[in-house]
Amino acid sequence: MSIQHFRVALIPFFAAFCLPVFAHPETLVKVKDAEDQLGARVGYIELDLNSGKILESFRPEERFPMMSTFKVLLCGAVLSRVDAGQEQLGRRIHYSQNDLVEYSPVTEKHLTDGMTVRELCSAAITMSDNTAANLLLTTIGGPKELTAFLHNMGDHVTRLDRWEPELNEAIPNDERDTTMPAAMATTLRKLLTGELLTLASRQQLIDWMEADKVAGPLLRSALPAGWFIADKSGAGERGSRGIIAALGPDGKPSRIVVIYTTGSQATMDERNRQIAEIGASLIKHW
């Protein structure tokens, strides 16, 4: 067993022997301040990774656009098919120029040779490549099948209805392509620590998230040296922004954090800054 596999296998073990965790309302004060600064709703939840206990939450059962955070769930569904012998990570998928959609920095470079399922998941999570996500959605049967996968996990809230990039439209009061912070946090925890996926697939999923290259201005910008984070960000229309993450000190994750916002007129930089400040408060009061 590799060191990384050992780390993920012992996530519940280490967490069980940690000192009790206590909620700190100071972080919620910052979440509410972010709402004021952005002029928009902000949803927040913080779960203990081992027990699933909610440590703090704000608007945990209000719907927010998922945006690209759905790509972690998508690759979880792909990995479940791999575990069941219905898919192979090494299978190569070929596609054409007509398949390319807006923001496809990886797939646009491989029109000639195609990409493997493993490479597509890596591109979808680490670079948020939209064509990679659409190609992977095709392998599982489309958005409705991802929703069905989530329902089978016990998540009857999260739903995907459309493809990239239309799913980022974020129309107010439109339930399409949305989740709730509580539902997303619980589902992410199941994917990373539950028995739904094999140990190898859980490790692969967290490795992809740990290698995320496009979430630097968010929670990662607030992390002290030595902290662990595996995350996936999302951005959408109407001032929408979000991030889902597993993080913790001492090089291992111990909490799940989900943050979503929508309806702001603020710039992307300002949305990023507010999420980073929430992260800084979380870490300060850990």
Rank of each mutant, 00 (worst) to 15 (best):
residue 208 W to T: 12
residue 36 D to R: 07
residue 39 G to W: 07
residue 96 S to F: 07
residue 186 T to H: 09
residue 168 N to G: 11
residue 183 A to H: 13
residue 117 V to C: 09
residue 34 A to P: 06
residue 179 T to N: 00
residue 176 R to G: 09
residue 83 D to Y: 04
residue 230 A to K: 01
residue 236 G to S: 09
residue 174 D to E: 15
residue 201 S to T: 08
residue 253 P to L: 04
residue 122 S to V: 06
residue 250 D to P: 02
residue 178 T to D: 02
residue 162 R to L: 09
residue 204 Q to L: 03
residue 165 P to K: 13
residue 100 L to C: 14
residue 121 C to Q: 02
residue 114 G to R: 08
residue 170 A to F: 02
residue 206 I to G: 12
residue 204 Q to P: 05
residue 164 E to S: 00
residue 200 A to Y: 06
residue 84 A to Q: 15
residue 71 K to F: 00
residue 231 D to Q: 15
residue 278 I to L: 12
residue 139 T to G: 06
residue 249 P to Y: 10
residue 91 R to C: 14
residue 92 R to M: 06
residue 285 H to G: 06
residue 129 D to K: 00
residue 259 I to N: 01
residue 81 R to V: 06
residue 269 D to Y: 02
residue 198 T to R: 07
residue 57 S to C: 04
residue 126 T to L: 07
residue 149 F to H: 06
residue 50 N to I: 03
residue 41 R to C: 09
residue 182 A to T: 10
residue 151 H to L: 09
residue 246 A to Y: 06
residue 34 A to H: 07
residue 127 M to P: 01
residue 231 D to K: 05
residue 71 K to T: 00
residue 246 A to T: 05
residue 104 S to A: 09
residue 175 E to R: 10
residue 67 M to W: 01
residue 30 K to M: 15
residue 92 R to I: 06
residue 193 T to P: 02
residue 251 G to Q: 12
residue 233 S to G: 11
residue 203 Q to R: 02
residue 183 A to R: 13
residue 105 P to Q: 06
residue 274 Q to T: 06
residue 194 G to D: 09
residue 275 I to P: 00
residue 107 T to W: 02
residue 170 A to V: 02
residue 220 R to D: 12
residue 195 E to Q: 09
residue 55 L to Y: 11
residue 134 N to E: 13
residue 57 S to G: 04
residue 246 A to G: 11
residue 244 I to L: 12
residue 229 I to S: 09
residue 129 D to T: 00
residue 75 C to W: 00
residue 270 E to S: 05
residue 184 M to R: 01
residue 122 S to D: 12
residue 173 N to M: 09
residue 76 G to K: 00
residue 192 L to N: 02
residue 278 I to P: 00
residue 207 D to H: 09
residue 276 A to V: 13
residue 40 A to I: 04
residue 71 K to I: 00
residue 280 A to K: 13
residue 41 R to L: 12
residue 74 L to M: 14
residue 233 S to A: 07
residue 150 L to P: 01
residue 161 D to I: 02
residue 149 F to N: 10
residue 207 D to F: 05
residue 159 R to E: 14
residue 150 L to A: 07
residue 175 E to T: 05
residue 281 S to T: 05
residue 101 V to R: 03
residue 42 V to I: 02
residue 196 L to N: 08
residue 25 P to W: 14
residue 178 T to A: 04
residue 64 F to G: 00
residue 165 P to N: 09
residue 196 L to Y: 13
residue 251 G to C: 11
residue 105 P to V: 06
residue 160 L to V: 09
residue 247 L to K: 01
residue 253 P to K: 02
residue 265 Q to R: 05
residue 258 V to T: 04
residue 61 E to K: 06
residue 234 G to V: 00
residue 253 P to V: 11
residue 44 Y to V: 07
residue 63 R to A: 12
residue 222 A to Y: 02
residue 256 I to M: 12
residue 252 K to S: 08
residue 175 E to D: 12
residue 213 K to N: 06
residue 143 P to N: 10
residue 100 L to S: 14
residue 38 L to V: 08
residue 131 T to I: 03
residue 286 W to N: 02
residue 149 F to R: 08
residue 219 L to R: 04
residue 146 L to Q: 03
residue 169 E to A: 05
residue 239 G to S: 09
residue 109 K to N: 12
residue 200 A to R: 07
residue 182 A to C: 03
residue 50 N to W: 08
residue 43 G to A: 05
residue 249 P to I: 14
residue 142 G to N: 10
residue 263 G to H: 08
residue 172 P to D: 03
residue 234 G to F: 01
residue 85 G to S: 06
residue 199 L to E: 05
residue 186 T to L: 11
residue 191 L to N: 04
residue 178 T to R: 06
residue 214 V to E: 14
residue 134 N to V: 11
residue 193 T to V: 04
residue 141 G to S: 15
residue 207 D to S: 06
residue 171 I to V: 15
residue 174 D to A: 09
residue 212 D to F: 04
residue 217 P to S: 11
residue 105 P to R: 04
residue 127 M to N: 15
residue 185 A to E: 01
residue 172 P to L: 11
residue 110 H to S: 14
residue 58 F to Y: 02
residue 61 E to P: 01
residue 97 Q to C: 04
residue 216 G to W: 04
residue 264 S to N: 10
residue 242 G to A: 05
residue 28 L to C: 03
residue 130 N to Q: 15
residue 32 K to H: 15
residue 145 E to G: 13
residue 249 P to N: 15
residue 208 W to Q: 06
residue 91 R to A: 14
residue 168 N to Q: 10
residue 221 S to C: 06
residue 108 E to I: 12
residue 198 T to L: 12
residue 220 R to S: 08
residue 246 A to D: 11
residue 69 T to N: 03
residue 188 L to C: 02
residue 258 V to K: 00
residue 267 T to S: 08
residue 232 K to Y: 00
residue 266 A to M: 07
residue 245 A to G: 07
residue 137 L to M: 10
residue 166 E to Q: 13
residue 48 D to A: 05
residue 223 L to H: 09
residue 149 F to A: 07
residue 232 K to I: 00
residue 218 L to G: 04
residue 185 A to C: 06
residue 137 L to I: 06
residue 67 M to S: 12
residue 126 T to D: 06
